[in-house]
Every structure is written in C-alpha cells, then in structure tokens.
C-alpha cells in the first residue's frame, strides 16, 4: 500500500511554493485542507476505520452476532486454511481472476481501438456496448445467463458445431465457471471507456510521423499506442483485478443464489457471505475478509512494483 503514495507525491513536489505565505499561510492551508476533508474524515472514522477495527477484532474471536465475541486467537485462521470449502473458494476465485480479467481487458482494448476511429455511428456503438454494464447483476441477468448456457441452448449448439458437446455449462461443475467468466467479459463497458479515454490522449502527430517512416498498423500499435496507453492499461488491470477478487453479484445470480453446482461458482465473497450472513459465523467471516484484504493488497503491491518495468508515464502526454 505504501507504493501508492508515489502517485500523489509527484505533483505535490512539483508545485511552486508560494514564497511569502509564511507560517500563518501554512496554518491557514492546513485549516482549509482539513475543513475540506472533514466529510471524508468523518466518513473514514465512522464508516470505514471504526468498522474495520471492529471486524479485525472479530477475526480473532468466535462471534455469532448474539453472544459477545469470545477471543480465540488464531483459531479462525487455522480452521480456515484447513477448510476444504475455503480452499475451494480460493481456487474458484483465482481461476476467475486469472481467466476473466485478461480476456475482459483484451476485448475492451480491442473494441476501444475500433471505436477510437472516427466513423459514423461511433457514439451509438459506444453506448450500446456499455449497455450490459448498466444491467449489473440484475435478476434478469441470472435468467438469461442460465438460459444461454443451458444444454441445447445457443452456446451449446454453437459448440456442437465444433464437435464439443459438454451438455450445457450451467449444470456442469467443470464448466459453469466459464459462464461466469463470459458474464464478466460481456460487461466490458467500464474498461472500454477508460481505454477510449486513454487512446484519445495519444498525440496524433506520433502516428503521422510513424506513417511517414513507413510503420504498419501493427508496428504503430506496438511502438506508439501500447506505450502511450500503458498507464491506462495499468489502471484497468489494477481496477479489474480488484473487482474480480471481490466478485459476488454475478456468481450469486448466475448460480440462482447457491454459488453451485457443487460449489463450482463458490467465489470468495460468496463463501464469506454464506458464513457471515447465513451461518452467523462472523468471526470466521471476518478472518476471511481480512485474508482477502491482505491478498488484494499484495496483488496491488506486485502490480505497482511491476509497473516500473512496463508502464510509461509520459509527462508531456497532454
């Protein structure tokens, strides 16, 4: 998490200090700063930090919501690591993150490249492609997804043309996760918009210069577009991975609330939810939540560390 600090630090350092302001000015700045921040500070203390500390405490207790929490040390964590359902949920989530995130981003980037060209109807396409993201994890998504990926439905029929007959994904524990992945990919609107925003900022002159040099479209993509949008790509990778780790709604509606069959769509938060809100094992659920926080923080840290190698921050990009 400390790595994140770099982002705000840079512009702050660049800022020209007002020389004559002096100490009184600085105090006024502090006052103004905290005044502006006061809603956030109140929200942070009341709705984030307080509940966080509470749940961190719960993670080391046995707590059924009714009787006061009872301190059990690391019991929840040891039980959790040995729990086959927890292991299953980790496996399902990792699979989902690793498969869905790159595919979704790839599609979003591809479509963004397509839409970045000035063509008639471009705005309409953009809005239409965003549509699935508007629907979110609505119950109707559950219905349609279960219908599309059932035995002998459109996807299955399409598969059979290629000689792949698995009899529908929804009822099959080995395939249902890919129905979830498909849903994630289908809702590629948000990263697409972010890619579009990034593409828009790539200076046109660079392409013109490259064209004069005789670079083909692939070369131009590789040498200009990709480096220029790498900060956006990084942002998208970060955001989408965090979202993927926390996926809940789509698993919930696609599996008709059970995150099955045979726990095959038991994503991490779904298990957390079952433990916490169905079984009232808040201690266990809190331990799970904190483990997820740590895991996501680690992934974030790794991503931030890796960005030095592949993300190009172009000061002159504007």
């Amino acid at each position: 998490m400390t790595l994140v600090k770099e982002a705000p630090a840079r512009p702050a350092g660049k800022r020209s200090a007002a020389p004559a302001a002096g100490r009184r000015g600085r105090r006024r700045e502090n006052l103004a700063g905290y005044l502006f921040m006061s809603p956030w500070i109140a929200g942070f203390l009341l709705l984030t930090a307080g509940p966080m500390i509470a749940s961190l405490y719960y993670a080391f207790t046995r707590y059924n919501l009714f009787t006061p929490p009872e301190w059990v040390g690391f019991d929840n964590f040891t039980t959790m690591f040995q729990d086959p359902r927890w292991q299953k949920s980790v496996e399902v989530t990792l699979k989902y993150v690793v498969v869905a995130t790159p595919l979704k981003l790839l599609l979003a980037l591809g479509v963004a490249l397509l839409l970045a060209q000035k063509r008639r109807g471009q705005g309409l396409y953009r809005a239409a492609f965003y549509m699935p993201s508007l629907i979110g994890a609505s119950v109707s998504v559950g219905f349609v997804w279960r219908a599309l990926f059932s035995d002998d439905a459109i996807v299955d029929r399409g598969q059979k043309i290629f000689g792949l007959d698995v009899g529908g994904w929804i009822g099959n524990p080995d395939y249902v996760i890919y129905a979830l992945v498909a849903l994630s990919i289908w809702q590629f609107g948000a990263p697409m918009v972010i890619f579009l925003a990034g593409l828009k900022q790539v200076p046109q002159e660079l392409y013109e210069a490259a064209e004069v040099d005789g670079a083909g479209p692939l070369r131009r993509f590789w040498n200009i577009t990709l480096p220029m949008i790498s900060p956006v790509l990084f942002f998208n990778v970060l955001l989408e991975s965090i979202h993927a780790f926390q996926v809940f709604g789509s698993a919930y509606v696609v599996s008709d609330t059970r995150c099955g069959p045979a726990d095959a769509t038991l994503v991490y938060t779904c298990y957390l939810y079952q433990k916490g809100f169905k079984e009232a094992q808040m201690g266990f659920a809190s331990a799970m939540a904190w483990t997820l926080v740590v895991a996501v923080a680690l992934v974030t840290a790794v991503l931030f560390w890796s960005q030095k190698k592949w993300v190009h921050y172009e000061e002159a990009a504007k």
């Binding site: 279960r146 059932s150 035995d151 009899g167 529908g168 929804i170 009822g171 099959n172 008709d256 099955g260 069959p261």
Partner: peptide, 11 residues
C-alpha cells in the same frame, strides 16, 4: 434425474 439438468432448470 441427471443433476446437471436438474441444476440448469432451477429455480
């Protein structure tokens, strides 16, 4: 009944 089929007609 085949549990895969049972599953996919739910609810």
């Amino acid at each position: 009944a085949d549990p895969k089929k049972v599953e996919q007609v739910k609810p």
